[in-house]
């Protein structure tokens, strides 16, 4: 008899307002599918990409700067044309998205871990610890994320020997973008923690004798995750943009393993000579990805906070 009342996680999810709102939002479904498509094609790029743009044996310099297949000089082998080194644009986009998404997700996770921990501790402990963490956050907020990422990258260049630079570049980038984003999480989590801390279920746990660590982890954390997920989605879009921007500025990932931003940077040099496809297609891929993620984030925020609609 109890089983009829007890709902499984799936059943609860299917009955939730979030799922219901998702089902009825074509924008949410569409952007979810687009995001999924891009993630999958990036993930399986080595298997599904028409060419391997990094296999020097396959690349032919004679194929360089070919326009898209439907243009007059196009070559049906290269749907979206080729770049200056004869690499297939479609394939470089798929491989580039791999790097962009990897850096994006990794830096979001990094930010989340740092930010949530700082926010929970700051909100729950209060007093000096809180003042200290929030002061750091305030100072960091004085600088846009892009500047902090640039600085960290610049410092890393000063510390890491030149030979090793290319190898660590991606990790430096993840650290730089990740560290520049933690404040958002910390502030939100701190705010929610202050609210949750004042609620009576936390006081009840304290009266029972539950220790602060357990209270934070078991009681407060699950209750502050809603807004965190919204920020994380939007932050993913920002992280991808930041990565692209840094790579575009020439301080991101090295050209040997290009991300979408690197591809746009490379193509930008050919913009004036009329080879627009080298820039525009990676740019379009980037915008579509970021827009899809942003639409998802926007929908999620409304779905979790029905008042705002």
């Amino acid at each position: 008899m109890e089983n009829t009342i007890e709902k499984t996680r799936l059943e609860r999810f299917l009955d939730s307002d979030v799922w219901h709102s998702f089902k009825n939002s074509p924008v949410a479904i569409g952007s979810f599918l687009v995001t999924l498509l891009i993630i999958l094609s990036a993930l399986f790029a080595p298997y599904i990409a028409p060419h391997d743009p990094f296999d020097l044996a396959v690349i032919d310099i004679l194929d360089s700067n070919l326009p898209p297949a439907w243009e007059l000089d196009g070559d049906p082998r290269f749907l979206l044309g080729t770049d200056d080194q004869g690499r297939d644009i479609l394939s470089t986009i798929m491989y580039g998205a791999r790097i962009s998404l990897f850096v994006g997700f990794a830096s979001v996770i990094f930010s989340m871990i740092v930010g949530i921990t700082a926010g929970l501790v700051s909100g729950y402990m209060g007093g000096r610890v809180d003042a200290f963490i929030m002061r750091i956050a305030d100072i960091q907020l004085s600088f846009p994320a892009i500047l902090i990422a640039l600085l960290i990258d610049g410092i890393a260049r000063g510390i890491v020997p030149k030979e090793a630079h290319e190898e660590v570049a991606v990790y430096v980038l993840i650290f730089a973008i990740g560290i520049s984003g933690w404040v958002q999480y910390a502030r939100t989590v701190r705010g929610s923690t202050l609210v949750e801390k004042g609620k009576e279920y936390v006081q009840a746990a304290r009266v029972i004798g539950i220790r602060p660590g357990t209270i934070l982890h078991r009681h407060i954390l699950p209750n502050v995750m809603g807004p965190v997920m919204v920020i994380a989605t939007i932050h993913l879009a920002i992280a991808i943009i930041t990565e692209a921007t840094l790579s575009f500025l020439g301080v991101g990932v090295p050209p040997t393993t290009p991300s979408l931003g690197t591809l746009i940077r490379i193509g930008n040099e050919y913009l004036f000579s009329g080879e627009w496809w080298i820039t525009i297609f990676p740019g379009a891929a980037l915008v579509i990805l970021v827009l899809a993620v942003n639409l998802l984030g926007d929908w999620l925020r409304d779905a979790l906070n029905p008042k705002l609609r």
């Binding site: 879009a237 943009i241 692209a244 921007t245 575009f248 500025l249 931003g261 746009i264 930008n268 913009l271 004036f272 627009w276 820039t279 525009i280 740019g283 980037l286 915008v287 970021v290 827009l291 942003n294 639409l295 926007d298």
Partner: peptide
């Protein structure tokens, strides 16, 4: 506005250059 926040500033610059400049 969502499209606006999804366009990286450098890409906006490139597009403007392409259209109004080139």
């Amino acid at each position: 506005s969502l499209v606006g926040v999804s366009l990286p500033p450098f890409l906006i610059g490139i597009l403007l250059i392409l259209f109004f400049g080139v």
